[in-house]
Design a protein around this nucleic acid. Structure first.
Length: 380
RNA sequence: GUGAGUGUAGCUCAGCUGGCAGAGCAUCGGAUUGUGAUUCCGAGGGUCGUGGGUUCAAGUCCCAUCACUCACC
């Protein structure tokens, strides 16, 4: 049963893929959609006008980071996260579950929750499922994620089972902790490691709970490439059709195309933003590293098929110069391009799905060609 | 002209009482999947100014020479 703050409507289908409309407190977006990552309340190197220009309709921020600094109460005092970062559209916050994985060295998980040693002041801070929800509701975000434990790969079956069961208990505590009337929807997260039966079991178990959407988590943690799509393929069919499906932290453009083909609606990933800051660009002609000397005299745009401000205005040679010189303009222009590439991909996916399975199939083939290393391999 | 100092990787420099030539930056390549990320990993690159000498062994000690820098005439 959905709360009034969130609704999802499926519009077109092509095989397992689908387009839809997701309505949240701060607006409606078309799916499949990609959310740029703005961990600390900022999509690194961009301002909100830039984010809008890329075509993004929704952004992701992080509970853990905003809790540690500047603090959710401080943000609430300043009018909530939307006003604080001057973003009018929907915001989803990750719960801090991924930090249990990525900050493993600095935290200790118990049944009660997770103790983190803050890198800022060395203080221990305790994040419980209840607090994770409280923080996200205090921030006033559109979608809160339940606190889960993101498990490392590889992990033995017993460890995965124990962890996933605890994630379920935490999930129920998150639901119980919700404020009755709230502008914040809550999404659950499917875990289960890389065991197909555990994935299915967990999906079936939590689909019965009162949640506004369902995420597939615990993927892209170092596993072999094929494993990711295998788990998506296994879990997605067991999630309700009338709720959005969100694949957390994924991924490369070709991963997204494949996941959409398997029924996923929502994505986020640091790759386009981080990669841009390190000089790596996604283009219609493949991946480009702007540092390479081969672009020194290249007066062509980054991506001849792209209409973003960066590609309309500057040459590869200039962008390389900016990057090599450490100019602040470089990360901005490159991030602008990568996010535009991702948003255009989502638009094309929506159009392809609306046109039917053959269009989607041809887009899948094209996407595999963008990755040089895997350009010759057959899509799974 | 006199005195002193400095010459080692593209650049800035380490290299102790002799023991297989080093770092940072730069260059080149790779990684990055719910951001601890302006990050991480790797590679190429030097006849140690030049010529002699001492020594089993010299970037290192000695002599000569060249270049540059500074100070004083």
């Amino acid at each position: 049963m959905a709360t009034p703050c969130s609704s999802f409507e499926e519009i077109h289908r092509a095989g397992a893929a689908r387009t839809g409309k997701l309505t949240l407190s701060h607006g409606t977006l078309s799916t499949p959609a990609f959310m740029p990552v703005g961990t600390a309340g900022s999509v690194k190197a961009l301002d909100p006008r830039d984010i809008v220009a890329t075509g993004a309709e929704m952004v992701l921020a992080n509970t853990y980071h905003l809790w540690v600094r500047p603090g959710h109460k401080q943000i609430a005092k300043l009018g909530g996260l939307h006003r604080f970062m001057n973003w009018d559209g929907p915001i989803l916050t990750d719960s801090g579950g991924f930090q249990i994985f990525s900050l493993k060295k600095f935290c200790k998980v118990t049944e009660e929750g997770c103790r983190f040693r803050s890198p800022l002041d060395g203080e221990w801070r305790f994040l419980s499922p209840e607090l994770a929800i409280e923080i996200q509701e205090t921030l006033g975000v559109d979608v809160a994620m339940v606190l889960d434990e993101c498990i490392e790969w590889p992990a033995d079956r017993e460890r995965v089972q124990r962890s996933t069961q605890r994630t379920t208990r935490w999930l129920k505590r998150c639901i119980a902790a919700r404020q009755a009337p709230s502008e914040t929807a809550v999404f659950g997260i499917v875990q289960g490691g890389f065991y197909e039966d555990l994935r299915v079991e967990h999906a079936q178990e939590i689909r019965e709970l009162q949640l506004d959407g369902f995420a597939i988590g615990g993927l892209s943690v170092g596993e072999p490439k094929e494993e990711l799509l295998r788990m998506v393929e296994v879990a997605a069919p067991h999630l309700p059709r009338d709720k959005p499906r969100y694949l957390m932290g994924v991924g490369y453009p070709w991963d997204i195309v494949e996941a959409v083909s398997r029924g996923v609606d929502l994505f986020d990933c640091v790759l386009p933003t981080r990669s841009a800051r390190f000089g790596g660009l996604f283009t219609s002609v493949g991946r480009i590293n702007i540092k390479h000397a081969r672009y020194k005299d290249d007066s062509n745009p980054l991506d001849p098929a792209c209409t973003c401000y960066t590609c309309r205005s500057f040459s590869r040679a200039y962008l390389r110069h900016l990057f090599i010189s450490g100019e602040a303009l470089a990360p901005r222009l490159l991030t602008l391009h990568n996010l535009t590439f991702y948003q255009n991909l989502m638009k094309r996916l929506q159009e392809a799905i609306a046109s039917g399975p053959e269009s989607l199939e041809s887009l899948r083939k094209e996407a595999w060609g963008w990755e040089r290393r895997f350009g010759d391999s057959t899509p799974c």
